[in-house]
Amino acid sequence: MGGKFPGKYPGSMRFACIFQIAILAFMGIIVLSKAGLLWPQWSVFAETAIWFIVAYLVLGTILNLITRSVWERRIWAPVTLLMLITSIMVAIT
C-alpha cells in the first residue's frame, strides 16, 4: 500500500487489507473456474469475469511499478506481472 504506514497499520488500513484478501480470493476462484479446475457451474460467468481480472491486474502492475515504495516495486511488481501473464493465458484458452 505504498509503504506509507511503517509498522502496524491503523484500523482502517487493516480493514482494507482484509477487503483486498477477499478480492484476491474471488479472483482466484474465477481464474480456477475459467481454467476448469474449480466450480464448473461458474464457467459462463468466468468467461467474462476473467477479462475484468486482466484489466485489474494491468492496473495493479502499473501501480506497483510506479509506487515510491522500493519493496513494492521489488516484490509486488513482479508478482502482479506474473499474475497478469498467467491470467491472460487462462483468458485466451
Score class of each variant (00 low, 15 high):
Ser12Leu: 04
Phe52His: 05
Pro6Lys: 01
Phe45Asp: 11
Val58Ser: 00
Gly3Val: 04
Gly11Pro: 00
Gly28Leu: 09
Ala49Pro: 10
Val54Ile: 07
Arg68Gly: 14
Gln41Lys: 12
Ser69Lys: 01
Trp76Tyr: 14
Gly7His: 00
Ile85Gly: 04
Arg73Gln: 10
Lys8Leu: 02
Met13Gln: 15
Ile66Gln: 09
Ser12Cys: 00
Ser87Ile: 03
Ile18Asp: 09
Asn64Trp: 00
Phe19Val: 15
Leu57Trp: 08
Lys8Met: 03
Thr48Ile: 11
Cys17Val: 14
Val79Trp: 02
Leu59Ala: 15
Ala49Lys: 07
Lys34Ser: 05
Lys34Ile: 07
Ile92Phe: 09
Trp51Val: 07
Thr48His: 13
Lys34Met: 06
Ile29Gln: 11
Ile88Ser: 05
Ala25His: 03
Leu57Ala: 04
Phe15Ser: 09
Ile92Met: 10
Ile62Gln: 01
Thr93Lys: 15
Val58Met: 07
Ile88Gln: 05
Pro6Val: 01
Arg74Cys: 05
Leu82Lys: 09
Trp51Glu: 11
Ala55Gln: 06
Pro6Gly: 01
Leu24Met: 08
Arg74Pro: 00
Pro6Arg: 01
Phe5Lys: 11
Ile23Ser: 12
Leu37Trp: 13
Arg68Leu: 08
Thr86Pro: 00
Met89Cys: 13
Ser12Glu: 05
Gly11Leu: 08
Gly11Asp: 09
Gly7Asp: 01
Ser43Thr: 14
Leu63Thr: 12
Leu57Lys: 07
Thr93Phe: 04
Pro78His: 06
Pro78Ala: 07
Gln20Asp: 12
Leu32Asn: 14
Ala35Leu: 12
Val79Pro: 04
Ala46Arg: 14
Lys4Met: 12
Val44Trp: 03
Leu38Phe: 15
Ile53Ala: 08
Leu32His: 12
Leu32Phe: 15
Lys34Leu: 06
Met89Ala: 15
Ile92His: 08
Val90Lys: 14
Ile53Phe: 05
Gly11Thr: 09
Pro40Tyr: 01
Thr93Ile: 05
Pro6Ile: 01
Lys8Val: 00
Thr61His: 00
Ile29Trp: 11
Thr67Gly: 02
Ile18Ser: 12
Gly7Ile: 00
Met83Gly: 11
Phe52Cys: 14
Ile23Asn: 12
Gly28Pro: 05
Leu59Glu: 08
Arg74Tyr: 07
Arg74Gly: 10
Lys34Asn: 11
Leu57Met: 10
Pro6Leu: 00
Thr67Phe: 02
Arg68Ile: 06
Ala35Glu: 07
Ile18Val: 12
Val90Asp: 08
Met1Arg: 14
Met83Trp: 13
Leu63Met: 13
Ile30Gln: 07
Leu63Lys: 10
Ile30Gly: 07
Ile50Leu: 11
Leu37Lys: 11
Val58Phe: 01
Met83Glu: 10
Trp51Ile: 08
Ala49Gln: 07
Ser87Tyr: 01
Tyr56Asp: 13
Asn64Gln: 11
Ile29Lys: 04
Gly3Thr: 06
Gly3Tyr: 02
Val58Ala: 04
Tyr9Glu: 13
Leu37Glu: 13
Lys34Cys: 06
Met83Ile: 03
Trp42Leu: 15
Tyr56Cys: 06
Met1Asn: 14
Thr80Cys: 02
Ile62Phe: 11
